[in-house]
């Protein structure tokens, strides 16, 4: 199971008169971990949502696994989405469903597994995030870090080829943040998916990143490896990492 290659070219996105993305070009190779940095409100979440077409772009091109996603109809898009995982900032667990139902939901609705296979997958996914005991809990009973883990389990249960993480460690204490980062890199090594991680947490990036980009003023102002970025003399980058 190889990861999917991602290419975004010259992506533009505005909300009414407010330009958020103004020509963003980036790519992530098969199996690569790309980290996207940027201050709050620069449009990192918007960029991820454009990539999976939760938001419509105003212009540009997007290729996932060589497929021009902007030309797909809803049915084709949904086929592609079955190969995607998305960990939202607040984990976005379905709060009317138990943990088990959360994990089963994509499996039952999109695939034709037997109940036994579903149970096995749920069990394995929970084991991967070390939360087997949470099986019958409701999301409201979970702590922030646990919610992130369950969100992660739900995203990887369909064995995606491309994983998107929106600020996976924001709002967590440093120790939990580090655990989640490690979990992400472990899953990545095991499942060999392509990952795009949006964050402003340098520690998390240090654990995960193969390559990093910096988003600022609607464009990419730096692309390269993390050491070069953190040791750069550019005043903005210097300021960002201090």
């Amino acid at each position: 199971m190889a990861g999917l290659k991602v290419e975004m070219k010259n992506i533009r996105k505005s909300f009414e008169d407010f330009k958020v993305l103004d020509g963003v070009t980036l790519h992530a190779d098969c199996g690569e971990n790309l980290v996207i940095f940027g201050k709050s409100g620069t449009g990192k979440s918007v960029l991820l949502k454009c990539l999976v077409r939760l938001l419509d772009v105003d212009g540009g091109e997007i290729y996932v696994g060589g497929v021009d996603t902007l030309s797909l109809n809803l049915k084709e898009l949904n086929e592609l989405r079955k190969d995607l995982g998305f960990l939202f900032q607040g984990a976005a667990l379905y709060d009317s469903m138990s943990v088990r139902e959360n994990l089963e939901f994509p499996l039952i609705r999109n695939f034709k597994f037997s109940q036994k296979e579903v149970d096995e997958k749920v069990f394995k996914a929970l084991e991967r995030v070390s939360l087997s005991e949470a099986l019958d809990k409701m999301p409201s009973e979970l702590s922030g870090g646990m919610r992130k883990r369950i969100g992660l389990a739900r995203s990887i249960i369909t064995e995606p080829k491309l994983m998107l993480y929106d600020e996976p460690t924001t709002g967590l204490d440093p120790i939990t943040a580090k655990e989640i980062s490690k979990l992400i890199i472990d899953l990545q090594t095991e499942l060999k998916m392509t990952s795009i991680v949006v964050t402003h947490d340098l520690l998390c990036a240090k654990i995960i990143a193969d390559r990093a980009v910096m988003l600022k003023d609607g464009g990419i102002i730096f692309e390269g490896n993390l050491e070069d970025m953190t040791s750069s003399n550019d005043p903005f980058l210097k300021n960002f990492f201090n």
């Binding site: 949502k49 999976v52 939760l54 949904n78 086929e79 989405r81 079955k82 995607l84 998305f86 939202f88 900032q89 607040g90 976005a92 667990l93 379905y94 709060d95 939901f105 994509p106 609705r109 999109n110 369909t158």
Partner: peptide, 17 residues
Amino acid sequence: GSMRVTEQIDAMEVSAI
């Protein structure tokens, strides 16, 4: 409304549901 705000609706949509 709370499902929209906490991105649960987005999560459903990206899981092809």
